[in-house]
């Protein structure tokens, strides 16, 4: 059941960011696209790849990676 709800969230988020990218790209739009993309990234890692049951070490580096790359995208764009 959790996998199905994760899939639905991923699906909706994908359509959402594709639609809002059609608006004039401003900083809030860029921030929304980046944040939603990072949430999708985390959902795949924690739910599909089952990082949720892994040791904290693997969870932390995954979260740190996604936050750092999201922040870099936002700052550069």
């Amino acid at each position: 059941m959790k996998l199905t709800s994760t899939y639905i969230v991923l699906f909706v988020c994908t359509i959402f960011i594709a639609l809002i990218s059609g608006l004039a790209l401003s900083k809030p739009i860029i921030a929304t696209i980046v944040v939603v993309s990072v949430i999708k990234f985390l959902l795949v890692g924690f739910q599909f790849m089952e990082l949720k049951i892994a040791h904290n070490f693997w969870k932390y580096i995954f979260v740190i990676y996604s936050v750092v790359i999201g922040a870099i995208f936002f700052l550069l764009l």
């Binding site: 994908t14 960011i17 990218s21 790209l25 696209i33 980046v34 993309s37 999708k40 990234f41 995208f73």
Partner: peptide, 12 residues
């Protein structure tokens, strides 16, 4: 791909 998709197609 979840990172490539926004950076190539959506954010520029």
């Amino acid at each position: 791909w979840l990172l490539l998709f926004p950076i190539l197609y959506l954010l520029f």
